[in-house]
Every structure is written in C-alpha cells, then in structure tokens.
Simulated scan of single mutants.
Amino acid sequence: MPVSIRVLIADDHPVWRRGIRALLDAEADIEVVAEAADGEEAIRAIRAGGLDVAVLDMEMPRLTGVDVSRTVRDEGLPVRVLALSSYDDASYVSGLLQNGASGYLTKDKPPSLIIEAVRAVARGEGRWFVQPTSKDDPAAGLSERECEVLALLAQGKANAQIGETLFISENTVRNHLANTYAKIGVRTAREAVAWAWRNGFPGAE
C-alpha cells in the first residue's frame, strides 16, 4: 500500500514523540515526515507544506497547540489538526473545535485509537475520540494557575499586572490565557471576562 498520509508530530517530550513516531511509521499508509518540539517549530513545518495531518500536543512551550491550530485555521494552511491533550471536559473540546482542530484525542487512549484518529482526520472526518465530560463547576478543567490568571483578568488587570501579581512572566501569562480560552471556548480577553462573570467564576468580582 503506497504512503498517502504525511504526518507532523509536535510535542515537547522527545520520548513521547519517538513512541508516536514508531507507532505511526509501522503503518504502511502513514509516514511521519516531520517533528517539532514546540509550537513555533510546528508552525514552520506546517507552512513548509507537504503535510496531511499535524498531531499537536496542546500544552507545548513558546506557542501552544491551541495557537498553532488557530494559525492553521486563520491562514488557511492545507493541513488537518489532530489535537492531543490530557483534558476531556466538554468546554475544552468545544474550544478546540472553534480554534480549528479537526479531531481530538486524550493521551491515555490506546495506540490503536491514535492510528485510527490520524486516518479519520486525514479523510476529513471531524471526530472527537473522547467522550467529553460536562461539569457544573465553571472552573472544571482549569488548572489552579489558570484559575488565578482568569480571575485577575476578570478583575481588569492587564497581562503585565497579572504577571507581577503571580511572579510569572508576561509570556507565561499569555500561555495560560491561551490554554484557558481553549478550555472555556472563547477567543478574546473580553469574551473570557464575560464568560467569567456570566458563570460566577470564583474571584471575578
């Protein structure tokens, strides 16, 4: 069977990348043609062309998988995104859908499902290979740090002020916000603040 699905694997953990690469390269109809250790490398590889599916970890450094997926969508790049993450809550899946992902898979799924997901996404089948859980708690799915950042944003603080309050860099604040936006299904700071107030988010007084 000729190779027909050309894949990029983007993840900041080299052991994980090697494992996924070995898994996919063992399939006659799949070839891993590029790897990336962070979001910026992933975007460069995608812009270079020659890819069918980008398997993206959502929590990469420099630029997150959410950022990369959004760039693919906004620039109309000819690749389909299979998002990998540890989260399975409904708001996070919904946010990734809005940000351009074609498929979603949690990292705890069996290897056979990863292969199936790559093939399905390559065929243009928008599928979620998880059973998303919906939680009443508006903070469900957010990390403790993401909750802190969102609460400060909702209080009207700018990124620099948030960083000073939490003793983290502005770039780290932006990364936390990008992940938070994806999880709650919004695209801008204004929408995030509105979401926080609408849902009675803790600290958004």
Rank of each mutant, 00 (worst) to 15 (best):
T64L: 04
A45F: 03
A36C: 09
G100D: 02
R62V: 15
P78V: 14
G95I: 12
M58I: 15
G95P: 07
L77F: 07
R70C: 01
R73Y: 10
D57N: 05
R70Q: 12
L84S: 13
V79G: 12
V93P: 13
V33S: 02
V81A: 11
I46D: 11
D88G: 14
E40T: 06
V81E: 08
T71H: 12
G49N: 04
G100P: 10
E41V: 01
P61M: 00
L84W: 01
L56I: 10
M58H: 06
V68G: 12
D57C: 04
S91M: 12
A42G: 12
R70S: 09
E31G: 10
E31A: 01
L77M: 12
G76V: 03
L63M: 15
E75A: 08
I30K: 00
R70L: 14
A26R: 14
V72I: 13
S85L: 07
G100K: 09
V53P: 04
T71L: 13
V81Q: 12
S86E: 05
A26Y: 05
I43V: 15
G76L: 06
A34P: 03
R47S: 02
P78R: 03
V53E: 05
V55E: 06
S91Q: 08
A45D: 01
V68F: 09
R70G: 04
S94T: 03
V72Q: 03
E41M: 10
Q98S: 05
Y92W: 08
S86K: 04
P61Q: 00
L63D: 08
D52A: 13
T71P: 03
E27R: 03
E41H: 08
S94W: 01
P78M: 08
P78L: 09
E41N: 06
D29W: 06
G76N: 10
G39F: 08
P61W: 00
T64M: 06
R80D: 02
